[in-house]
Design a protein around this nucleic acid. Sequence first.
DNA 1: GTTCCGGCGTAAATCGATTTACCCTCCGGA
DNA 2: TCCGGAGGGTAAATCGATTTACGCCGGAAC
Lengths: 325, 325
Amino acid sequence: MAHVTQTHLAKHLGVSQALVARALKNDPAVARATRDRVQAEAARLGYRPNVTARALLTGRTGLVGLWISRPYGSYAARLIFGFEKLAQAAGVDLLIRDLGPQGQAEEMTARHIGLVDGLIVVDAPWHVETLLRSGASSRPCVGLGSTISPRADGVAVDLFRGAGQALKHLREVGCRRIAYLRPEHPLGDREDRRRAYVRAVRLPEEIAMEDATRAAAHAALTRHLKAHGCPDAVFCHNDDYALGALRALRELNLRVPRDVAVVGCDGVEDTEYLESPLTTIALPFDDMCRRVWTFLRERMDGYAGRPRRIRLMPELRVRGSSLRG
Amino acid sequence: MAHVTQTHLAKHLGVSQALVARALKNDPAVARATRDRVQAEAARLGYRPNVTARALLTGRTGLVGLWISRPYGSYAARLIFGFEKLAQAAGVDLLIRDLGPQGQAEEMTARHIGLVDGLIVVDAPWHVETLLRSGASSRPCVGLGSTISPRADGVAVDLFRGAGQALKHLREVGCRRIAYLRPEHPLGDREDRRRAYVRAVRLPEEIAMEDATRAAAHAALTRHLKAHGCPDAVFCHNDDYALGALRALRELNLRVPRDVAVVGCDGVEDTEYLESPLTTIALPFDDMCRRVWTFLRERMDGYAGRPRRIRLMPELRVRGSSLRG
DNA sequence: GTTCCGGCGTAAATCGATTTACCCTCCGGA
DNA sequence: TCCGGAGGGTAAATCGATTTACGCCGGAAC
């Protein structure tokens, strides 16, 4: 038998299927003896409720979508860590989905929106917009990132201010020539880090990577150093790229921070374990997750007010890679 | 209106709902003109198929479960990376789920088995057993890890041999006193790495961590070094812990590899970017993912033969952390 | 003119659990 | 004796898409 259903149980017990359904959910209108009999039989035959049938009727799947670019990166890992804990506590599960290029927003929405009770969209306000445009049937949706859609709940991290702090710090330790290491094709709106940074410092020296990997960061910086010599500091789009940058500098026998200071962004755990730990703009990951989750839960519980937004501040964490005494 | 259904479209167009259904799936029995009319209306009203209704009828959700401990760790990240690509190519999505303690296997199975078309279980053969025990209703399931259940398809990585290679290498570079840094409460069956190692080398010196984190590795090794002095080499349960170990050694002014060699396990990208890159037992991640996926796809396509197993070999990657020339 | 067939559609069953609207029986109170 | 009501069940609608089994109509063949 492929699957034990309530109907099977009902037949076995000689009662109606409706009674089985109610006994299984501990409906007090069912006599205790009957209830026990049904539940015993269910256990004996290995009955498992059919999740999709229930979902069809109730409209809830018990899944919360997490849409994020590169769910295997260290930035994503830190968020997955936070959300996973919250999801477990709430008894729901995360459906983690890699955001494709921007053009696929429409198709992704179509495929997934029916599967989740709520949605967290990281660094992709256009996805949120697509969702909202797709009509009233949308599930609750919360944005997270450096820029977020004003039309939905969202938690923003003020990277503009973070970049400003980093710059101030670099200036204070004597850096004048500061280069920005960034991906050529930005991922999601983390692109805005760059814009924020450039606005903050009016910095002419940019180093573009060809791909969004550490290896690409390593290659791009190596090339740049050979062509243009060494700046006083390298400001990296994220901590991952900073790792690539550090390697490039090391291979060219440039010393950090003596010859060049390095600053990253994110504050992922990895970079605390380097020989010279990385100065970085640390994001308040736990707080980010908690706020997002609260928004989402409230929406799923029926809150229907205006979009709410919160802006959180990152925190510059000065460590060895920029400390030139 | 909450949701546009086929019935709504049918009413609007003055045709039957069945016709709408067939027009939408491009059934050739529907006249071209009718089909276009239906599809145009669907687009206009923003119709989206209800995934749960389809799933109830067809029995497929388009989700593949990935059950893995600590889905935010670097080991998991590497697997997520591999599977995500395969899943995208196949047009399905990954439902990533953190494995709780072993005792929760039963409950997890109950909650999720109905949501996925297939399942990948990493380093947790008992989950596979629970699944199989739960009856014929189970979905196809493939194991991955250093030990796997013989009762289901599985891809094993021979960490026993890997540990042997690592040991041989350490001996060759002159290490005699070799300590093993391992978690106190093993995660899944990666515990078997330890057993494999101990069997391979009959090694008495073990350093137990209190938690499965880098910080715990750092703390445990620091304590051990202070109490028992420094071994010739530290063999780490995984690369993450190796990072913690390296930090501990550095803080005590022990030089790697001159004073002590360090070997990790996994071969995640992170450790290539250290000042002294880490010698490690590299797992063939891409191959692992591909094999698992093939098994799973074949099962989902109806293959019903006996369980198949593959054993893959890891590869010792010698780098700076153990090269004492 | 009748029969047959292909092209187009419709009606209705189905998936499995939830939920609403009832029905029957037994007991107490008037 | 009759009515009301509570306790314990049953029948049936429902969610939305898929699929099977037909039905209708017009033209071709005899």
